[in-house]
Each structure stands twice: as C-alpha cells, then as structure tokens.
C-alpha cells in the first residue's frame, strides 16, 4: 500500500515536471520571431558532436571527438561558416597545418598574383588573390579542370557558384561562404585600369602579412 502511494506520488511529480517543460517548449514554439530557417542563433553555433544533429549521441564518437569550440577558441573569429577566419589564423600562425602528409617542414610554393575580374553588374570588381589560395592548395587543384589558366577563358557567374561550380567548389562548402560578398567583390568599379599589383595590395589587405606566410611555429 505504501509503495503504491509512493509510486503514485512519484509519477505525479514526474508528470508535473514534464508538464512544465512541455509548456515552456510550446510557448517558445509559439513565438513568431523564432522562425528563421537559414540562420543559427549564436547559442547554436559550433555545438559539441553529441548535440550537432548529425552525430549519433549514442555513438562512441560523439563523446570522444573534440568539440569544435575547444579548437576555435584560440583562433581569430569569422563572420560565417565555422565562425573562424582560417586565412587569418594561418597568417597569424595560430594553426600550422602541414603542406605534406609526412613532412612537417614542407612549405607551400606561393604565387603572388592577383586576377581582377571586371564584373557585369553593379557590384565592385572581383579581385582574386593567388597568394592566399596557394597557401592551402596546389595549382592542380584548380587548373585546368575548374579554371582554364588563360585570361578570358572562364565564364563565371554567381548562379554557377551557388550551384557549387567554379569558386563554389570550395566557397559555400568549406571555404568562406558566398554571403561574404565583399571579400571577393572588393575593387570599386572605375578603378579597373589600376595595375594588378595595386589592386592586389588593396584586396589582399585582410590577410597581408608577407613575413608570416607559410611559417611553422
């Protein structure tokens, strides 16, 4: 009889707790401002594996893998993507990714050449810096399969990029997403006649730390 009563009290308490939680959930869901399909609130950025919705919380990996925030805390902040500025992190030597699978001393061969693309619309021209790209990549990653290394040979459009072609092979998947318009569209129209070197200096400014490139700490 006593155990029955205890059981009853226990279930009552549990259901009361659940009811409170349920009401809270409902009131949150009823907030018309809560709907935002594509944007994550800061509280939902860089969650640990067990809470990221892709890892199975039951799996060993979810517990054992490193939470991204732990790695990112020492790196310069970014506006989107991983919310980390990878190019800056490399320039500041906050990270020292190998350029070779086995050799930690291997250095990339940097190419400091800016390509200015005059765009058709009202947006500023695009300045493409080879320098930051050759920090990470090999020439063969882009040439000739994605970009023919010849002036005027590549038709590029934002539509193609959004569909994951051309720049969109990386930008919008792993490299900074296309929402950061100004990082590419960086040269005001009318300045197109300026030399490539000048334009480049302006465009490469965010990551311009020539002495620190490719360094291993």
């Amino acid at each position: 009889m006593i155990t029955k009563r205890l059981l009853f009290i226990g279930t009552m308490a549990m259901s009361a707790l659940l009811a409170v939680a349920f009401t809270l959930e409902v009131s949150e869901a009823a907030d018309p401002n809560a709907f935002n399909r594509l944007m994550k609130p800061p509280s939902k950025r860089n969650p640990p594996p067990a809470k990221d919705g892709i890892h199975d919380p039951e799996s060993v990996g979810a517990e054992a893998l490193q939470p991204p925030k732990e790695a990112f805390s020492a790196m310069p902040k970014g506006k989107s993507g991983n919310y980390v500025d990878w190019v800056q992190a490399l320039a500041d030597q906050k990270i020292a990714p190998r350029f070779d699978r086995l050799d930690p001393e291997a250095k990339p061969i940097l190419m400091d050449l800016n390509i200015v693309r005059e765009v058709k619309g009202s947006m500023p021209n695009v300045v493409y810096p080879h320098k930051q790209h050759t920090e990470w990549l090999d020439c063969s990653n882009c040439h000739p399969a994605i970009f023919i290394p010849q002036k005027g040979a590549n038709q590029i459009s934002m539509a193609a990029i959004l569909l994951g072609e051309k720049c969109g092979v990386c930008h919008g998947k792993v490299a900074f997403p296309v929402s950061e318009c100004r990082r590419c569209h960086s040269q005001p129209k009318g300045k197109a006649a300026t030399t490539k070197a000048e334009a480049g200096a302006a465009a490469a400014q965010p990551a311009a730390q020539p002495a620190a490139t490719a360094g291993q700490p």
């Binding site: 890892h55 490193q66 990112f72 190998r98 699978r101 990339p108 090999d138 092979v169 990386c170």
Partner: peptide
C-alpha cells in the same frame, strides 16, 4: 553508422592540398 568527416578538424592539421591533390580526394 554513416561516416562524419570534420573538415575543420583536419584543416587545422593539414592544408587542402594534402588530401585533395596528393591523396586524390575529389571535391
């Protein structure tokens, strides 16, 4: 379970070129 590959974790340790040029991973 399906495989989850964390790009960010690998990017801290290796540059894109190591996997995407040397090891032949397509984009």
């Amino acid at each position: 379970r399906p495989v989850v590959f964390p790009h960010w974790f690998h990017r801290i340790r290796f540059r894109c070129k190591v996997c995407h040029a040397d090891l032949g991973f397509k984009f």
